[in-house]
């Protein structure tokens, strides 16, 4: 187990290493920024990085306004990226600039990217909150798609029928209580990760919730902390902790059984495993059975969600991948 953990950490560090080093050093000149196109149809977007001092706001027509303080301290706003002082282009808020050339590995020059930006990204997302979408790195897509297919069948053929039958036998309030019970015993995962991120208040919240729910909530089956004292639950895990400290997701992995993940969050799952009390249940088969039961119980409460995603999607694999990525970003920001 420990060996696997070390191997995961090493591979994760290896994967994110280039990303970290490129963040640490601003590009020497703009021509160093590259954009690649995978084939004639699919283009990867080049990204510019701006220092946090530059505020980026959409102009509502797909372009952006960049405002910054100049040397005299006056607030200056411009709508073209190449009139920004060069020192402002480095690590920081990424700005997506569409690149529209079929050739591979073409250096993006600012002037070019500006014109292509107008051509392509006209309807790009309007966003003041800095929620710029990134590109998901998915080099093992064929493997991921195979596992996606596997998980899909597993859900419809095994998990869903079991969860449905289970849900017919046990009424919903009972299943909610069981979910609360599991949530309660996973407290160490959330509490420790709050602490690791310096969220002292969150740590206190989790401890308080655990004490209140284990006593007043009868072994955690009820959420007395919420109903009686209005203490909201926190959602932290080790993957979020790593993300909190700036670790990128690495490559996207769609694990069999576990579903969507990435290098960072996989390391997170392994790390959190040490804090999960269920993993210390002996023998191993009991621990596995408990986890399986938790999964069935949770599935019985969320039947129909995956079906809805699939029904609305044109490419369910991409839809799930994007949804996972955006949700993780959201949780890390929180």
């Amino acid at each position: 187990m420990r060996k696997i953990f070390v191997a995961f950490v090493c591979s994760a560090l290896w994967t994110i290493q280039p990303a970290v080093s490129s963040f640490a050093q601003p590009p020497e000149s703009l021509s160093e920024l590259k954009a690649t196109s995978i084939d004639g149809q699919t283009k990867r977007f080049g990204q510019f990085y701006l220092v946090p001092d530059v505020d980026v706001a959409s102009d509502g027509f797909g372009g952006y306004f960049y405002s910054y303080k100049d040397k005299r301290g006056n607030k200056t706003t411009t709508n073209s990226i190449d009139s920004l002082p060069k020192g402002l282009l480095m690590a920081g808020k990424p700005v997506q600039v569409a690149f529209n050339d079929a050739a591979t590995e073409v250096p993006v020059r600012v002037a070019e990217s500006r014109t292509s930006q107008h051509e392509v990204s006209e309807p790009s997302a309007h966003d003041e909150s800095g929620e710029f979408e990134g590109e998901i790195y998915d080099p093992i897509e064929p493997v991921n798609r195979a596992f996606f297919y596997f998980n899909d069948k597993l859900y419809f053929w095994v998990l869903k029928p079991i969860a449905k039958g289970y849900g017919k036998v046990f009424p919903e309030p009972l299943r909610v209580s069981v979910r609360n019970f599991f949530h309660n015993i996973f407290m160490p995962v959330r509490a420790v990760n709050c602490l690791l991120q310096g969220k002292i208040k969150g740590f206190g919240t989790e401890i308080t919730r655990f004490v209140v729910n284990s006593t007043m909530g009868v072994c955690g089956f009820g959420d007395a902390a919420k109903t009686a004292f209005d203490i909201d639950k926190r959602d932290e895990d080790f993957g979020q902790t790593l993300g909190f400290y700036g670790l990128g997701p690495g490559i996207y992995i769609n694990w069999p059984l576990l579903g969507p993940s990435n290098i960072r969050d996989t390391v997170g799952i392994v790390g959190d495993g040490f804090l999960n009390p269920v993993n210390y249940v002996e023998p191993f088969k009991y621990s596995l059975a408990i986890k399986g039961y938790d999964q069935v119980n949770r599935t019985s409460l969320s039947l129909g969600q995956y079906e809805a995603l699939k029904k609305a999607a044109f490419d369910p694999y991409i839809s799930l991948r994007e949804a996972y990525y955006e949700n993780r970003c959201y949780k890390i920001r929180k």
């Binding site: 699919t42 999607a313 044109f314 839809s319 955006e326 949700n327 959201y330």
Partner: peptide, 26 residues
């Protein structure tokens, strides 16, 4: 013009799916 549920934007999700499809197909 967009709804995000727990950070998951509906429009971003469709845009990513459409990105790689030909218009005819989609």
């Amino acid at each position: 013009y967009d709804i995000s549920v727990e950070g998951r934007s509906l429009i971003n999700n469709y845009r990513k799916q459409f990105q790689r499809m030909s218009y005819k197909k989609l």
